[in-house]
């Protein structure tokens, strides 16, 4: 579904991605783990065309999105939903308008159809009755749920999650993870989650990739990653900064 080949990106003199190679399979939830500042969010922004790499390609359904611009890139984006780190909800709009936004802007539906879809998406994420609240009136967890509802509403084939549980308490982390898993089963999207929630992330992923120092250093099932002999993976999972201590 998504194939990333030798992706390289620098900001000034700092090279953030040094040749990322990764395949994300259709219908699966793939998690990318790694330390903060390791380039995970930068990688996600490349997949949705917000950043352009210096070298490398990203193939989505066979099309290299690093070469696409304008309406051709928008065509690919129509199949992708993104749940941003802070939710990126439009704070001048109500929850209803936020969730309805992809439908009102891109897909021409009548008001009744939009209403039904918004109510369904909000109930899928457990937020019935919150339609007319503003993002500022919601808790962090609720905002993430609204962001998920907005990403789900146009039924995209791919959803990218940029640290969807950062800043939430452990109970909310579990509940958001469960929500991602449940909605993935319900809608069947291909998911990519950027996270450093260890070990919770292993419960909801089909595959896990570890990004370290601008490269993917390990890929495998959650079990394989947890049993990995790779010293970088081991030290990250155990939360040890200096791997020589192992």
């Amino acid at each position: 579904m998504i194939e990333i080949k030798e992706l390289q990106k620098s900001f000034g003199k700092q090279q953030v991605l040094k040749g990322v190679n990764l395949v994300i399979n259709e219908g699966e939830v793939t998690a990318i783990i790694g330390r903060s500042g390791g380039g995970k969010s930068v990688l996600l922004k490349h997949i949705v065309g917000l950043l352009k790499p210096e070298r490398g390609n990203i193939l989505i359904k066979g099309k290299d999105i690093t070469k696409l611009k304008g309406s051709k890139l928008d065509e690919i984006r129509a199949d992708i939903g993104v749940v941003f780190q802070g939710g990126a909800l439009f704070d001048s709009m109500t929850v209803y308008d936020n969730v309805a936004f992809p439908l009102t802007e891109k897909i021409k539906l009548n008001k009744k159809e939009i209403y039904e879809k918004v109510i369904k998406a909000l109930s899928d994420v457990g937020l019935q009755g919150m339609e007319y609240k503003y993002p500022a009136e919601l808790s962090g967890g609720m905002r993430k749920r609204v962001a998920l509802a907005r990403a789900l509403i146009a039924h995209p084939k791919i959803i990218l999650f940029d640290e969807p549980t950062t800043g939430l308490d452990p109970i909310l982390v579990r509940s958001i993870h469960k929500l991602i898993r449940d909605t993935q089963k319900l809608y069947g999207f291909t998911g990519l989650i950027i996270s450093h929630e260890i070990p919770e992330i292993f419960e909801i992923s089909d595959r896990v990739a570890m990004l370290h120092d601008g490269r993917i250093v390990a890929v495998g099932s959650p079990e394989e990653i947890q049993k990995s002999d790779n010293i970088i993976v081991k030290s990250f999972i155990m939360g040890i900064e200096n791997w020589e201590e192992l």
Binding site: K45, G86, A88, E105
Partner: peptide, 17 residues
């Protein structure tokens, strides 16, 4: 500016707006 730093502008872009 706040829309920029809270990724609302990025959100518009990825929604093809």
């Amino acid at each position: 500016g706040i829309m920029r730093i809270t990724e609302q502008i990025d959100a518009l872009t990825v929604m093809a707006v």
